[in-house]
Amino acid sequence: MKILFAAPDRDLLECYKQLLETGLGETVTAFDGTQVLALLATEDFDILILDRKIPRVDHKVITERANAKNVPVVVLTDEPAGARRREEESLPNGRMSYPFTFAEIKKTILDTLEKRGTEERKGQVSEDE
């Protein structure tokens, strides 16, 4: 599995790069939105973990671009877990509120991938039919 982790906090990136690499798979980090777009254009990723406040490029633009390349996105937000973000709820991606533990983000990543996989399978079945 290849993960792209994008957040504006270097300590968070460094810590979670190591955790994700030992727990899930190869992890590439990005500090701002332009880096994320460049990486998305040049490399293939299985999932993008994206901080909602990523600088330089709006997170919605990045999410659209990633979804267009069939890369699901887990949006990280500093909003409380109960806060409603209707525009995000409608997206076929994951959502995670800080603070979280490694176990929690791992579960969210796997759930999001499974959801995307199920949707793809559904899509393939309907195409076959």
Binding site: Y16, Y98, F100, T101
Partner: peptide
């Protein structure tokens, strides 16, 4: 204030997990 606490707490917990590993 609440938002400012969120990322540091994630990092502290993450680094503790790394130290444990």
């Amino acid at each position: 204030a609440n938002k400012e606490f969120r990322i540091p707490l994630t990092v502290i917990d993450g680094n503790t997990e790394l130290a444990e590993r």
